[in-house]
Write a protein that binds this DNA or RNA. Structure first.
Lengths: 150, 150
DNA sequence: GATGAAACCTTCACCCC
DNA sequence: GGGGTGAAGGTTTCATC
C-alpha cells in the first residue's frame, strides 16, 4: 500500500466507473499495472465493493430522521428479533447497535412528516420489545465521505 | 419509472460494475434498452454516482465513534467555519447539521481509543466555537443500505 | 424493445527494468 | 518485485429496424 494505491482508492471512491485507461492517466501509470493493483486491493478486501448511489430526494424520500431506540430487555433473542425487523423495513437505511444503554441508532428516509408518523406508529413501535424512541431531524448533510482513507 | 427501472437500481446499488449484458439478463431485457434506461436515470439525477467502497477496518480505521457537537453561538460565520474545518478533517466521514439545539452529528473513523483521544483533544476541540461534545461508541453496524429505493 | 457493427475497454502472456 | 506492450476477447454504444 503506497502512494499510488492511495490515489487509486481516492479516484475509485469518487468514480467507480473510471476505466483503467483514465485511471492510469490520473495516477501516472499505464493501464495494466493499474489493473493489477486494483485486483490486489480487491483480493485483500480493501476494495470491498462498487455501488451506485440513488438520490433519495429524487426518489421522493428526501426527509431524513435519526432515531434512537431502546429495548426493554437487552437479551439476545430480543436484539435478534429487532435487527431482523429493521432489516426488513425499507425506510431504515442505516442502523447501528450502540454501547451504553444498549440503544440502536437508526437513519430513516421518508417522504415527509406524515409518512414518518405512519412509520413510527405503524411499524417501528410495533416491533416487540421497543421501550422508548427519540427522534432528531437533520437540516442537511455537511459531509458524506462514506469511508476513511488516510 | 416502472418495475424494471426499480430492478435496475436495485442491482446497481449492490454492484455498480455489472455489465449491461449481465444486468439485462437479471432484469429481463436485452442490453441496449437496459443501457438507455441507465442513461435516462443518470440524466434525471436519480442515479447520482458510482462509488467504490473501501473497508475501514482493513485500512486500520475500524473504530467508529459518533459525536454530537454543540457550538456556543449559532451564527452563520461560526457554522461556516466549523463546517469548513470538519470537511478538512479526514477522520470525519459523515456529518449532519441538526435541528433543535443546533448540534452537529459526526461519524468519526479512527484506529483505536488513543487515536480518538488525539482527534478529540488535538483537533475537534481546537475548532473555534465548539462548546460541548458528547461521544457514543457503536458495537457494530446492523444495516447499511446507503439509500432508500421503495 | 431488439439487432448488429464499430469503437472501446479489459485482460493476459510476455518482456523489460 | 513492479511496470510496460500488444493482441485476443469481451463490452458499450449507436444507428437502424
Amino acid at each position: 500500500m503506497d502512494e499510488i494505491d492511495q490515489r487509486i482508492l481516492r479516484e475509485l471512491m469518487e468514480n467507480a466507473r473510471l476505466s483503467h485507461q483514465e485511471l492510469s492517466d490520473r495516477v501516472g501509470l499505464s493501464p495494466s499495472p493499474c489493473a493489477r493493483r486494483i485486483k490486489k486491493l480487491e483480493a485483500d478486501g480493501i476494495l470491498s465493493g462498487y455501488y451506485a448511489r440513488v438520490d433519495e430526494a429524487k426518489m421522493g424520500f428526501g426527509f431524513t430522521v435519526f432515531i434512537s431506540v431502546r429495548l426493554d430487555k437487552q437479551i439476545d433473542s430480543q436484539l435478534e428479533q429487532f435487527e431482523r425487523s429493521v432489516r426488513n423495513l425499507s425506510e431504515v437505511v442505516d442502523c447501528w447497535l450502540m454501547t451504553g444503554s444498549f440503544d440502536y441508532l437508526l437513519r430513516v428516509a421518508v417522504s415527509d412528516l406524515s409518512e414518518f408518523e405512519v412509520f413510527l406508529t405503524g411499524r417501528l413501535t410495533k416491533i416487540p420489545g421497543v421501550a422508548s424512541i427519540e427522534s432528531s431531524i437533520p437540516i442537511r448533510r455537511v459531509k458524506d465521505q462514506r469511508s476513511r482513507l488516510a
